[in-house]
């Protein structure tokens, strides 16, 4: 038995919108502690990890660990039918007696917050997905940058009109985003800035040692679809690891995107 009740339906809509273009099919893993997902993109260059803790739901019941394979575009289509303030309650009551996961379904109910007499029920087919789960150990990063998510999104968008890759360098000077293309080059430097009116507008740079890595802008731009989830983004860089671009989901968890760098052949 799985029962979830999420009063802020827009949150789940935003989560699906942020990952559906990167990952087609994924297993949602449910346990007593929460709802999680880990999936690679089809070229195995990027990985998304989602966590929604059980405490963040108004109601959460998961009797035993289960994995629900979903087509994320189909799930996003269904969630588009929900109003931003609708209450969303996905459930999977038949799990215990369903012989094969491939023929089972998830039921999703949207309850309109304004008209209590309007209830919409959807049923979506689940898929049998043979996905591999990668172990991501806790790691020390050479530099961690926290900045406004809208600023990061703007930089990625602007640079991608000039080049295909971005070099992210953290030095004492700040964090530098550089690209080059046929028409020329572009450099954007963000310095640490904590003297702002609101904490979410700050740029905070923690640097243990300078680091410089090259990434495909196409993926970075895809990650920025998570911008509506959080006012800030955290970018963790290490010369030995994929970059981690993290959007916190208020009081519930996070969406983390891991991207392998471009390396010298």
């Amino acid at each position: 038995m799985l029962e979830l009740r999420l009063v802020q339906g827009s949150l789940l809509k935003k989560v699906l919108e942020s990952i559906k273009d990167l990952v087609n099919d994924a297993n949602f893993d449910c346990s007593a502690t929460g709802f999680s997902l880990q999936a690679m993109d089809s070229s195995h260059v990027a990985l998304v990890a989602l966590l929604l803790r059980s405490e963040g739901f108004e109601h959460y019941r998961c009797d035993r660990n289960m994995s629900m394979g979903m087509n994320l575009n189909n799930m996003a289509k269904m969630l588009k039918c929900a109003g931003n303030d609708d209450i969303i309650t996905p459930s999977r009551p038949m799990m215990a007696v369903t012989p094969s996961p491939s023929c089972s379904k998830v039921q999703v109910r949207f309850t309109c917050c304004f008209a209590q007499d309007k209830i919409a029920d959807f049923e979506m087919k689940l898929m049998d997905i043979d996905s591999e789960h990668l172990g991501i150990p806790e790691a020390e990063y050479h530099a961690i940058v926290r900045m406004p998510s809208s600023e990061f999104s703007r930089i990625c968008k602007d640079l991608s009109s000039i080049g295909d890759t971005v070099v992210i360098s953290v030095t004492k000077e700040g964090v530098r985003f550089s690209t080059r293309g046929d028409i020329g080059t572009a450099n954007v430097v963000c310095r640490q800035n904590t003297t702002v009116d609101k904490p979410e507008e700050a740029t905070i740079i923690e640097m243990n040692e300078p680091v410089s890595l090259t990434f495909a802008l196409r993926y970075m731009n895809s990650f920025t679809k998570a911008t509506p989830l959080s006012n800030t983004v955290t970018i963790s860089l290490s010369s030995e690891l994929p970059v981690v671009v993290e959007y916190k989901i208020a009081e519930m968890g996070y969406v983390r995107f891991y991207l392998a760098p471009k390396i010298e052949d």
């Binding site: 990027a46 172990g135 994929p242 392998a260 390396i263 010298e264």
Partner: peptide, 14 residues
């Protein structure tokens, strides 16, 4: 020449 690394180069299967 730069080549695109894969995620599996860094993280192993659980």
């Amino acid at each position: 020449i730069e080549i695109q690394a894969g995620i599996r180069y860094y993280y192993g299967k659980v």
